[in-house]
């Protein structure tokens, strides 16, 4: 698939003057979604930063149809919309645009149910690794050691790997993506739109106020996550599991940048000792080893 910036739609699917924080990573992803599928989708948005960034009615900052829904309901509401469209002969995709809290915590039963019954839904979970909308509380997707307002000395538990769980469940299409790699995310959205059944994209989306870094660094933080190996770009496409560039080269640990490059620019990790950073580095390697088993 060709991806020339100058051939992408110029229509603004995310409008200026919205309520997102300066430097919001999620909004970069939402713009890519608009460019890829803007005219073919209805968005289902559970309680999240995405409900707030729309701004104040009767205005909305999103130039796509948006149905705001209760926190835990998005995957099921999307199922209903998708079934209704099929019954009524409407072309288009029910797309969930949900944060990590609604996906891996409160709404996980609905996500898992939609995956199991293979509902025809594209589910995008933008992962800013905490409950940002309510003020940076720990979620099941917060990484170990990260400071949040409810883990003042750092989270003690592992991040839930929801994408891997859903791939193991056998959903037709599961992928990870990262807002620093819009081309990869765009292609994955287009691919998801071609496949019937349940599609899940786990989008890494840094949050400057929540992660305590300069809003100018959103894309850099996201890119460092891939280059240090913390975030792995992969896709599971109807039974075939593969790495996607540039993560392919980072399977080789020696090619990865030192983890400290990623850790040191985020205030949420400021309390970590060098020893703890080395410990996380081992955990990152362990994650790669897990992924490697799927690649075999």
């Amino acid at each position: 698939m060709t991806f020339r910036l100058d051939q992408l739609p110029k229509k603004k699917y995310v409008l200026p003057g919205n309520a997102a924080c300066a430097g919001c990573g999620m909004m970069i992803g939402l713009r890519v979604l608009g460019m890829a599928l803007g005219e073919e989708v209805v968005l289902i948005v559970p309680a999240s930063c995405s409900s707030v960034v729309q701004g104040l009615a009767p205005k909305s900052s999103i130039a796509m149809p948006v149905l705001n829904v209760p926190f835990a309901s998005a995957a099921a509401v999307a199922t209903g919309i998708s079934e209704a469209f099929k019954a009524l002969g409407v072309r288009g995709h029910a797309v969930v645009w949900a944060g990590d809290g609604s996906t891996v915590d409160i709404g996980f039963a609905a996500v898992s149910g939609a995956a199991e019954r293979n509902s025809d839904v594209i589910y995008v979970m933008y992962d800013n690794e905490a409950y940002m909308n309510t003020g940076i509380q720990r979620s099941g997707s917060t990484p170990k050691y990260a400071w949040t307002s409810t883990t003042p000395v750092g989270k003690r538990e592992q991040k839930k790997d929801v994408a891997l769980m859903l791939a193991v469940q056998g959903a037709p299409y599961v992928a990870t993506a990262n807002i620093a790699y819009p081309q990869d995310f765009y292609r994955k959205l287009k691919r998801a739109a071609e496949i019937p059944g349940f599609k899940f994209i786990h989008l890494y989306a840094p949050c400057p106020p929540g992660w305590r870094f300069d809003p100018a660094k959103t894309v850099e933080v996201a890119r460092l996550a891939v280059e240090t190996g913390v975030w792995i770009l992969w896709e599971y496409d109807r039974g075939a599991f593969r790495l996607n560039p540039p993560s392919t080269i980072y399977r080789d640990r020696a090619k990865r940048r030192p983890l400290a490059d990623y850790i040191k620019i985020q205030g949420r990790f400021a309390h970590l000792s060098d020893e703890e950073v080395r410990f996380i580095e081992e955990e990152v390697e362990a994650k790669w080893q897990r992924i490697a088993k799927f690649l075999e």
Binding site: E39, E40, V41, V42, S51, V52, Q54, G55, L56, A57, P58, K59, S60, I62, A63, M64, P65, V66, L67, N68, V69, I81, V90, R91, G92, H93
Partner: peptide, 15 residues
């Protein structure tokens, strides 16, 4: 009428 290509929003915060 909640349809692709018809950009209505329902349920965002009221002004």
């Amino acid at each position: 009428a909640f349809r692709p290509g018809v950009p209505v929003t329902f349920g965002n915060l009221p002004s």
